[in-house]
Design a protein around this nucleic acid. Structure first.
Lengths: 340, 340
DNA sequence: AAAAAAACTGCAAACGTTTGCAGTAGTTGA
DNA sequence: TCAACTACTGCAAACGTTTGCAGTTTTTTT
């Protein structure tokens, strides 16, 4: 590793001047600067970020903590963050919690030692507590809210998205619409559930508890829940299903297939969150699409501007719009099933 | 940020002793050690990794450079790496090149400044050159080879995997088998192509150039190539397709659908690399599955043991086996198409 | 032409650790 | 009882930068 001192020696200046030539070019004479730059080039000098960060007490880096890198939604968010960060010459430390609060705690501790300037986090149910580990580190919450008072957040309009999905179903004539809702200790699930209720109410339909089942946000949870809902007697079985996240939607589709239900003739399905799988499965899935990439990109930009312009007085709460994409998995309820 | 000095003060020892109490416990008296540990706990002390790394001239961290975080294959590899690293208390710096050698160069430079102890990289066609930026940083190549002499690598048996796929097709009776091969400046594509040739030869079938088309490794490239192959006159059209990576396989399936070809009646398809999409599409896709997670995990473990035990004299070259998973997208050639 | 200002450069300290070395106290052996 | 260990602890330097301050040279102003 070639150090600044060697560059300085080659350029016949002091390390101080060499440092300035590289990071505050206008503070040094043109000729000197060029000598230093040339020397640096010749030696292939790359500044030691550790030393620099240590001295400056901050590290031109950000932490990003997501809950599941294997979920394309999160992977895309991460890419948005990284692209925005790279644009501003920041490095991103990525950690993965697998929805496990303990792993989240470890991640935060590890992160701390690297003195990031800010944090982007997809909260778990214990984040509010864990965030104390990095008190007064500028933080933006992504996708969900931890409930930390005064927290900044970038999310989508879950209520509106869910409502548009369910209104689409009611408009098609469905009257028994089930929902697989997710864990109610995660705000997205609560909000989507809320949208579901609102849409039912708007259509003058009663809310029926027995048609709403929780799932664990994974494929298997969706499959189990869908199985339960769809195994009800024909005249009590929902004719349509609204599923609260992408993974569970896969499970729901599989359950429908296992039960020999045709989509959309016997069952309409709307999922939350688009994916290649949803686009290319047959029939193509009607979904509420989220701007995943933008969530990450915008959140990162917001965080960086927060860092530049000092703390905001008001908590920043950004809600991005969702888009209902109607494909082939939704249709009017079939004649086969009796209507109440 | 609470520093070691404050801990030391609270425990009434020197910073040196505090340091030792935390990182070489057996060098300090039991009673002292406990006092220090208690003080650290009380203050919520977390060591400043930057300072530590600076002093130790190494940073208990690894670099991971992949080409596309949105590709589930790479995301899974990354997860394998991260899990292994976390197990050994290493931090991973993740960078994304989007297959762009220039971004790769930037990533390597950024990485350099963080003094990682090792590097795991999925090479691009320019990696061999770019790696000079981090000369003598212990490095393992993943999935592909850069051609750097003496490089360590962890890959799958691409030749064998491709051969098993194509042998499956020949065994079913296919005689006109097309291949969408990928970029020939990437070793995986070359090797899979090689396996394809070997399987044809083993079945006594001629290699026909016109049935082999390159693709750009993305969905669109696969679609275009498949379109071209499948638009040939019926008696020259391949009855089966072997596609060289997961993204292109999606494109190929879409192309078949656009052309109204039924899978597997009119066309058998085998893809390389499994995915949820492949499992759940209908008909479920026959694929050559790779142990993605293991690639990452094993590569990381190997790198870490390399770090512990000094440089290996021999380059390490690990090849993991693939598995042919036969599902519903392959069948004997249909009666509709004439046989040569 | 002298004074004042501006432009540039170098010295040295600091960031928070770790670690070689030396010093002190307590213990063992003769 | 004294020497030689052993066990522990502290001092101070070092890692590679950045930056406040002061010193020197050059330029501008009067």
């Amino acid at each position: 590793m070639v150090s600044l001192e060697e560059v300085a020696k080659l350029a016949q200046v002091s390390p101080a001047t060499a440092s300035r030539a590289l990071s505050r070019p206008d503070m040094v004479a043109k000729e000197t600067r060029e000598r230093v730059l040339e020397a640096a080039r010749q030696l292939g000098y790359q500044p030691n970020q550790l030393a620099r960060s240590l001295r400056q007490r901050s590290s031109r880096s950000l932490g990003l903590i997501i809950t599941d890198i294997l979920n394309p939604f999160h992977a895309t968010v991460a890419k948005g963050v990284q692209d925005a960060a790279e644009k501003h010459d920041y490095t991103v430390f990525l950690f993965n919690t697998d929805e496990d609060p303990e792993k989240e705690r470890r991640a935060l501790n590890a992160l701390r030692g690297h003195l990031p300037q800010g944090l982007l986090i997809v909260p778990t149910p214990r984040t509010r507590e864990n965030l104390k580990l990095v008190a007064n580190l500028p933080t933006i919450e992504l996708d969900r809210q931890s409930g930390t008072p005064g927290a900044h957040s970038v999310m989508v309009d879950n209520v509106g998205g869910a409502r548009s999905a369910v209104e689409h179903l009611t408009a098609l004539g469905h009257r028994r619409i089930g929902m697989i809702v997710g864990r109610l200790d995660i705000t997205t699930a609560v909000e989507r559930h809320q949208g579901y209720r609102e849409a039912l109410a708007a259509a003058g339909l009663p809310y029926r508890e027995e048609l709403v089942l929780p799932g664990n946000h994974r494929e298997e949870g969706g499959r189990v829940a869908a199985h339960a809902l769809l195994s009800r007697p024909p005249d009590e079985r929902p004719t349509a299903l609204f599923v609260g996240n992408n993974e569970m939607t896969v499970g729901a589709v599989l359950a429908a297939r296992e039960l020999g239900l045709r989509i959309p003739e016997d069952l309409s399905i709307v999922g939350f969150d688009d994916s290649r799988w949803a686009r290319t499965m047959q029939p193509a899935l009607t979904v509420v699409a989220q701007p995943e990439y933008d969530i990450g990109f915008l959140a990162c930009e917001t965080l960086l501007s927060l860092l530049r312009h000092g703390k905001a007085v008001q908590p920043i709460r950004i809600r991005l719009a969702t888009t209902l994409i109607v494909r082939d998995s939704t249709a009017p309820p079939g004649h086969a099933s009796s209507q109440p």
